[in-house]
Amino acid sequence: MPQPRPRRAVCLDLDGTLIDSAPDLAAALNRRLAANGLAPQPLASVKQMIGDGARVLLTRGFAAAGRPLTETELAAELEAFIPDYEAQSLDETRPFPGVEEALEALADAGFMLAIVTNKPEAPTRTILRRLGLETRFATVAGGDSFPVRKPDPGHILGTLERLGIAPADAVMVGDHANDLVAARGAGVRAIYAAFGYGEADHRALGAAAVIERFDALPGAVAALFASAS
């Protein structure tokens, strides 16, 4: 009689890992800058501002444009930014090449899939649903799903608790230092998505593997678990 597959999970970051959302995030940021009479920020610069949520994106964007925000101004800008971005969050946002095939391969291999992102949970689910990806994931953990978020390891640990998966049986995939730091703190092996927006020193931060494109993920995950068995 065949033995049941062990329960294992692959946790994925969203922006810069699963989806290429930088053009829409940059456009939304630049609309707020324009509303304040400030020059737009180039896409390459905005990519380096992504990964810590909308509040930090706005803080970094306005500072780069030469007008740092006070806390009161930031609250007002955030209130304007979020609905504007959500209304146009899929103008140019698309999954990275190979995403659908790689997710199917991981699911066929018996892995549970989860999203662990600092983007709030509701817009994350909306984006996934509109891209036809939401049903691929057993759970979606946004930046507001728990009292903490990446780089706090509690964000990953809370997600794994939802799934009933031990840290040793999980992998975290992301393009940002936050992903690697959170994974290290949670005792979860990390795969660095080098095609994303981050410029993390993945070796210093303990990434167990690096992928240059998304379709390499199933092989990288299989290799990690094979080496641990």
Results as ranks from 00 to 15, higher is better:
Ala109Asp: 15
Met112Val: 12
Ile115Gly: 01
Val116Arg: 02
Thr117Leu: 01
Thr117Gln: 03
Asn118Asp: 12
Lys119Gly: 00
Lys119Pro: 00
Lys119Ala: 00
Thr124Gly: 04
Thr124Ser: 05
Thr124Cys: 03
Thr126Arg: 14
Ile127Gln: 14
Leu128Thr: 04
Leu128Val: 06
Arg129His: 13
Arg129Met: 09
Arg130Phe: 09
Leu133Gln: 10
Leu133His: 11
Leu133Tyr: 08
Glu134Gly: 06
Glu134Lys: 10
Glu134Val: 14
Thr135Glu: 15
Phe137Met: 04
Ala138Val: 12
Ala138Pro: 08
Ala138Thr: 15
Thr139Asp: 04
Thr139Glu: 10
Thr139Val: 15
Thr139Lys: 05
Val140Thr: 12
Val140Tyr: 01
Ser145Pro: 01
Ser145Glu: 00
Ser145Asp: 01
Phe146Trp: 01
Pro147Ile: 03
Pro147Trp: 02
Val148Ser: 09
Val148Arg: 02
Val148Asn: 05
Val148Trp: 00
Val148Lys: 05
Arg149Met: 03
Pro153Glu: 01
Gly154Ile: 04
Ile156Ala: 14
Leu157Asn: 04
Leu157Phe: 04
Gly158His: 01
Gly158Pro: 01
Thr159Phe: 01
Leu160Met: 10
Glu161Asp: 13
Glu161Phe: 00
Glu161Pro: 00
Glu161Gln: 03
Arg162Asp: 06
Arg162Asn: 09
Gly164Gln: 07
Gly164Met: 08
Gly164Asp: 05
Ile165Arg: 07
Ala166Met: 13
Ala166Ile: 13
Ala166Asn: 14
Ala168Glu: 14
Asp169Ile: 07
Asp169Trp: 08
Asp169Asn: 15
Val171Asn: 07
Val171Thr: 11
Gly174Thr: 08
Asp175Cys: 07
Asp175His: 03
His176Ala: 14
Ala177Ser: 14
Ala177Asn: 08
Ala177Pro: 03
Asp179Leu: 06
Val181Leu: 11
Ala183Gly: 11
Ala183Ile: 04
Arg184Ile: 07
Val188Asp: 10
Ala190Trp: 08
Tyr192Gln: 08
Tyr192Ser: 07
Ala193Ile: 07
Ala194Asn: 13
Phe195Asp: 05
Phe195His: 11
Gly198His: 09
Gly198Tyr: 05
Glu199His: 13
Ala204Ser: 12
Gly206Thr: 10
Ala207Arg: 11
Ala207Trp: 03
Ala207Leu: 05
Ala209Pro: 06
Ile211Val: 10
Glu212Asp: 15
